[in-house]
Computed example of a mutant assay.
Amino acid sequence: MAGRLWGIETRYALADSHPLSGRSAPDFAFDDGTRLGEHLRDGRALLLDFSGGAALRQLADQYGGALRYLAADAQDRLGVAALLVRPDGIVAWASCAAPELAQAAGAAAASFLGRRDL
């Protein structure tokens, strides 16, 4: 009952099948002492990359100011390699596997932010 009242059990139906997709993003505690919530304060979508690969950074660059990129490590990643978090804190896309992250994240970003062909 409490989960419903506080909205923590709310799940939006999104195309991505990852268990975190459509739910509130976990407030990851990063190794630099910041938390996820601090990185969402500017009202932009956030592409969180635990692997630190160049492909996701390049994807974020295609969206300019609409998508913020953060390569960071967290105390507990929950087995996730990367996440796309909407400005409202809902996970739009998540992946546990590093291969082909950019392609999958690109499809999610295009769905949420609109297509960017550069």
Rank of each mutant, 00 (worst) to 15 (best):
R35T: 01
F28P: 00
M1Q: 08
A92E: 13
L118Q: 13
A29P: 09
D27M: 01
W93L: 09
F30Q: 02
R35F: 04
F30M: 01
A97P: 06
S95K: 08
E100L: 11
R86D: 06
T34V: 04
L78S: 05
D16T: 14
G65I: 01
A109M: 07
L67H: 05
G64Y: 05
D32I: 00
H39S: 04
R57S: 05
G114I: 15
F112R: 10
L47Q: 02
G52Y: 12
A105E: 04
A102Y: 05
A2N: 10
M1F: 01
D117W: 15
T34S: 13
R41M: 00
L20D: 05
D49M: 10
V80G: 04
L56Q: 06
Q75S: 13
R86I: 09
F28N: 02
V80N: 02
A81F: 14
P87W: 03
A105K: 02
A105G: 06
D88G: 05
V91R: 10
Q75A: 15
S95I: 15
H18C: 05
A98P: 01
D16L: 10
R35N: 05
R11K: 15
L5T: 12
Q103F: 13
L59C: 03
L84F: 11
A102G: 07
R35D: 10
A45Q: 09
D42S: 05
